[in-house]
C-alpha cells in the first residue's frame, strides 16, 4: 500500500471523528438492545440460584447425553455442508452459466423454509405414514425419531451458511488471480489451495463457525423429528425446553447459557485471532 502524504486525500479516506463515534455508538446501542440484553437475561436467570445450582444441572445424565448428541450432530453436519459450500461457491462464483440465480435461490431456500416445515418434510418422507415409511419399517431402519433424522433436519437447516458466506466474497474477488496462477503452470487444485483458499479463509472460517453454531442451536426442525425422548434423542436446545417446562428455569437457562458461551468463545477466539494477525494478513492475502 502506498503512503498517502496529501492531507486532503487522507481526510477523504476516513470519516470525521464525530461521525465515527456516533456510528460506533449507534451500532453498539442497537446491538445492546437487540442482542446483549437477551444474553444478559439468560445469564442472570442461569446464575439466579448461584453457581452451586449449575453443578446439579450438568451432573444430570440427561444433560450429558444431550450435549453428546448435539456435538455428534454438529460433527456430522458441518463437514458435509463445508464440502458442499466450497463446491457450490466455486461453481457459482468462478463460472457463468444459465440459471445461476435460480441455483442461488435454491441454496437460500432452507433459510426461508419455516423450521416447522423443515422437520415436517422429513416426516413426510421417512415417517411411518410417509413415502418411504413402509419400506423403512419392513427393513427395520430408523430415520426419524433417531440420529439420522436429527442429522438430516439439521443439515437441511444449516446448508446455506457456508455457501452463502463464500459466494458474495468469491464473486467480488473474480477469477483473475486463479487464472494468473494457472498461466504460471499451477494445477487447478494447487491454484485453489494456494490462491483461492487464502483469499477466502476468513469467510470460510465464519461460515464454519456459523454453521456449527446453528447446528448446535437448531430447535424448530429438530423438535419435529426428535421424539423428545429424554436421554436418547434430546439435543441441547430441546433439553432447554424440557427443563423450562419442568419449571427448572435455572437449569434451562444454564444449558442455554452454555450454548451461548460455546458460540461466544469460538467466535471471540476467531475475532481475536483475526485482530492480532489481521494487519499482517491485510498486507498480504489480498493483492
Amino acid at each position: 500500500m502506498s503512503e498517502i502524504s496529501n492531507p486532503t486525500v487522507a481526510s477523504a479516506l476516513s470519516e470525521p471523528r464525530w461521525v465515527r463515534w456516533s456510528l460506533i455508538l449507534i451500532g453498539l446501542a442497537y446491538l445492546s438492545l437487540v442482542v446483549l440484553l437477551p444474553l444478559a437475561a439468560i445469564f442472570t436467570e442461569a446464575l439466579r440460584k448461584g453457581v452451586g445450582a449449575l453443578h446439579e444441572v450438568f451432573a444430570d445424565d440427561a444433560t450429558y447425553s444431550a450435549i453428546i448428541l448435539t456435538l455428534t450432530v454438529a460433527a456430522i453436519t458441518v463437514p458435509l455442508n463445508l464440502v458442499f459450500g466450497v463446491a457450490a461457491a466455486w461453481a457459482i462464483a468462478k463460472f457463468e452459466f444459465p440459471g445461476k440465480s435460480l441455483l442461488i435461490t435454491f441454496i437460500d431456500l432452507p433459510f426461508s423454509v419455516s423450521p416447522v416445515v423443515s422437520g415436517l418434510i422429513f416426516v413426510l418422507l421417512f415417517g411411518a405414514q410417509g413415502l418411504f415409511g413402509p419400506w423403512l419399517a419392513a427393513n427395520d431402519i430408523k430415520i426419524i425419531f433417531a440420529l439420522p433424522g436429527i442429522v438430516l433436519a439439521t443439515t437441511f437447516v444449516t446448508l446455506p451458511f457456508i455457501a452463502r458466506e463464500l459466494i458474495p466474497l468469491m464473486q467480488e474477488q473474480g477469477t483473475a488471480e486463479e487464472e494468473a496462477a494457472l498461466t504460471l503452470g499451477a494445477s487447478g487444485l494447487r491454484a485453489f489451495i494456494t490462491v483461492t483458499l487464502p483469499n477466502i479463509r476468513w469467510a470460510l472460517l465464519y461460515g464454519v463457525l456459523l454453521c456449527n453454531a446453528r447446528a448446535m442451536g437448531e430447535f424448530g426442525a429438530v423438535a419435529v423429528v426428535s421424539g423428545h425422548i429424554r436421554g436418547l434423542t434430546n439435543t441441547m436446545p430441546l433439553h432447554v425446553e424440557i427443563l423450562y417446562n419442568e419449571y427448572n428455569f435455572v437449569g434451562a437457562f444454564a444449558v442455554a447459557a452454555l450454548l451461548a458461551l460455546l458460540a461466544l468463545v469460538t467466535l471471540g477466539a476467531k475475532s481475536l485471532l483475526e485482530w492480532r494477525y489481521g494487519d499482517a494478513l491485510a498486507g498480504k492475502g489480498r493483492h
Binding site: G127, A137, K142, F145, H228, I229, R230
Partner: peptide
C-alpha cells in the same frame, strides 16, 4: 423407562409418524 413429554396432540402425531 425413558419418557417423552410434550403437547398431547403433538405426541400422538409423533407416535402415528413412527415414534416407537
Amino acid at each position: 423407562i425413558r419418557t417423552s413429554h410434550g403437547g398431547s396432540g403433538r405426541q400422538a402425531r409423533s407416535v402415528i409418524d413412527g415414534l416407537d
